[in-house]
Simulated scan of single mutants.
Amino acid sequence: MKTNIIEYCLQKKGATQEYPFGPEPLVIKIKDKMFALIFENIEKHTIINLKCDPVIADNLREQYENVRPGYHMNKKHWNSIALDGSVPEPDLFAMIDHSYLLVVKTLSKSLQNSILEN
């Protein structure tokens, strides 16, 4: 599942991967702004942190046991999701899409237009 998630993130237009903190975590960015962070926690479970609208974040945390406030992140705007199969992959992809678009919307209008053009 982890490989599918990484590949999906990197298929986003302009997405790049970096390891700015050492061998972990994997940080996936758009124009130097992070939209996904993938790491293993102390129990060796793979976790992905994704940016999220606060209202949607609360709803997802209520809906899924393994969606929690962002680990080492702003807990209002980030979720940590365990990649253990408890959240269906299509739902994870939708969360990644949401995170990506939230970050794209923080970019300049010209960058937004160049990224969102088909």
Rank of each mutant, 00 (worst) to 15 (best):
K75N: 00
T16Y: 12
N4D: 15
G70W: 01
S99A: 13
G14Q: 02
T46H: 00
L116Y: 06
T46V: 09
V27W: 05
K105T: 04
G22F: 10
E40Y: 04
S108E: 12
A82Y: 12
L107D: 04
I47K: 00
E65W: 02
K76W: 06
F35L: 11
P23F: 09
P90V: 06
S99H: 04
E62Y: 12
P25Q: 07
Q112F: 02
N113R: 05
I47M: 09
A15P: 04
P23S: 14
T46S: 09
L37N: 03
I5L: 02
I28Q: 05
L50T: 05
E40D: 13
S80A: 13
D53C: 00
S108Q: 12
V103H: 00
R61L: 08
T16K: 11
Y71L: 15
I47L: 04
K44W: 06
K51A: 05
Q63M: 07
K13Y: 04
L50N: 05
K75G: 08
I81L: 11
K13F: 07
T16G: 01
I42W: 00
K51Q: 07
N113E: 13
Y71E: 13
A36P: 07
N4Y: 10
P88S: 13
A94K: 15
S99G: 11
H45Q: 12
D97P: 02
K33T: 12
P54Y: 05
I96S: 03
E7A: 14
S110T: 14
P23Y: 04
A36S: 09
E62M: 13
